[in-house]
């Protein structure tokens, strides 16, 4: 059962708090900006195997950094749930008549919006470094891919937050998950350059397909066909919604 009002309330709350927390916005965008500036400028003139010289490293890197921005901000949506549990607000939400599904959808909607806002800002900032933006249809298609990426990682965060109930446990695990997912995804360099044993894990990483799809759409260069990327992203994101919904349903709220 899906209640639109509950989804709207949870989304609206996230928007209000996001607009009020300027430091959060700056904090979330600082790391990808540094990565983009230093890696982008530092490797600008390097010939990296697997990246055609006609594309250039900045063009190659930007979709990867967008993937990173989405990965980090989405996974930390779970942190918001942990904070709400710690401050007691979660139980207030959990005793309302809103179905667990609506609550999860509301949290996804809030987290996805903030993540997308951040990634879109990154995209426009990258123009300052010489990134050539694609046309509007391609940007809209890229936003759709970004949404799928968010949904996957938001739900990983939500699932973890209903299993691990304290800050420290959550932080530890999320760092063990987020960094490897980022480094394996081919955000910074072509996955093909990794040794075969490690590359296997790259192909298990959903972000690999997300970043690849973004590249396909934004710079017209990708390892897999777009259809395969999008198909995989859709399958994984629906599965993750079901999994986090399940954990929310069965877990105790306290």
């Amino acid at each position: 059962m899906i209640q639109v009002n509950a989804i709207y309330v949870l989304w609206m709350r996230e928007m209000i708090k996001y607009a009020r927390a300027k430091s959060r916005l700056v904090g979330a965008i600082a790391m990808p900006v540094f990565m983009l500036v230093f890696l982008g400028l530092g490797f600008r003139r390097v010939d990296i195997p697997g990246i055609p010289g006609s594309i250039g490293y900045i063009q190659y890197l930007v979709p990867g950094i967008l993937g990173m921005t989405l990965l980090f901000s989405s996974a930390y949506t779970g942190m918001g749930v942990i904070m709400d549990r710690q401050y007691g607000f979660l139980k207030e939400v959990m005793v309302t008549p809103a179905s667990r599904t609506s609550i999860v959808l509301g949290m996804i909607a809030g987290g996805a919006t903030t993540s997308l806002v951040q990634a879109t800002m990154m995209m426009f900032l990258s123009v300052l470094l010489g990134f050539r933006l694609p046309g509007l249809p391609a940007i809209l298609a890229a936003v759709f891919i970004m949404l799928l990426i968010c949904v996957i990682f938001i739900n990983i965060g939500l699932t973890l937050s209903s299993v691990l109930k304290d800050f420290h446990g959550f932080n530890l695990i999320i760092n063990f998950i987020v960094f490897p997912l980022f480094l394996l995804s081919g955000a910074l360099f072509p996955v093909a350059n990794l040794p075969a044993a490690i590359r296997v894990f790259s192909y298990l990483d959903p972000l690999t397909y997300g970043v690849d799809a973004l590249r396909g759409i934004m710079i017209d260069f990708s390892e897999f066909s777009l259809l395969i990327d999008i198909g995989i992203l859709i399958i994984i994101s629906s599965a993750m919604v079901a999994i986090s919904g399940y954990f929310f349903q069965k877990g105790e709220a306290l």
Partner: peptide
């Protein structure tokens, strides 16, 4: 609740408003 359960990042009215909206 006995223990705190407000969202301190919202105003008092927003806390009430959101609660009322959750209850349709």
């Amino acid at each position: 609740f006995q223990d705190p359960s407000l969202d301190i990042g919202l105003t008092g009215r927003e806390n009430l408003e959101f609660h009322a909206m959750m209850y349709n």
